[in-house]
């Protein structure tokens, strides 16, 4: 009862996010895999929309292709490789670590690390500053003025 309600909800959600293509699926698992995959790939034409959200003809073609590949029994990884081989890294929102993407992956952590190091240096220098008795006495005089 609860599970049928949940899958009903899920069904509504799936229809909600994807543009409607009339595809027949063998079972619910295939339907979910298909929905997951088309939400995952970037539409090559529209720069920042995924396949499921795009109305571009090429997105429609790619949805049909994903459907066919899932139907033919490809695993999710095989489908990813298939599209990547034809459309390049661009269709993957999650770019692979390569020579030309290293700054993307390691730039921000590097900056964070550099920032932490500098903060620690400043911090340690601050604690190291201690006044001699003489200096303390002068400070008191200045503060009382």
């Amino acid at each position: 009862m609860v599970s049928s309600f949940l899958s009903g909800l899920l069904g509504v959600w799936v229809i909600g996010v994807s543009t409607i293509d009339a595809f027949e699926f063998e079972d619910e698992v295939e339907r979910l895999r298909y929905s997951g995959l088309i939400a995952e790939f970037r539409c090559p034409k529209c720069l920042n929309t995924n396949l499921s959200g795009s109305d571009a003809p090429v997105a429609r073609d790619l949805r049909r292709t994903v459907y066919r590949l899932v139907d033919e029994g490809m695993t999710d990884d095989q489908v990813r490789r298939y599209l990547q081989a034809r459309y390049g890294d661009f269709v993957l929102y999650d770019p692979p670590v390569r020579a030309n993407t290293w700054i993307l992956w390691f730039g921000p952590p590097f900056l964070l690390l550099a920032g932490i190091l500098v903060l620690r240096r400043i911090g340690s220098r601050m604690t190291r500053v201690s006044l001699s008795d003489d200096e303390r006495a002068r400070l008191e005089v200045i503060r009382k003025q």
Partner: peptide
């Protein structure tokens, strides 16, 4: 006509 060869070629426009 239906863009299948286009997909194989990675055509997006």
């Amino acid at each position: 006509a239906n863009g299948d060869l286009g997909v194989e070629l990675g055509v997006y426009g």
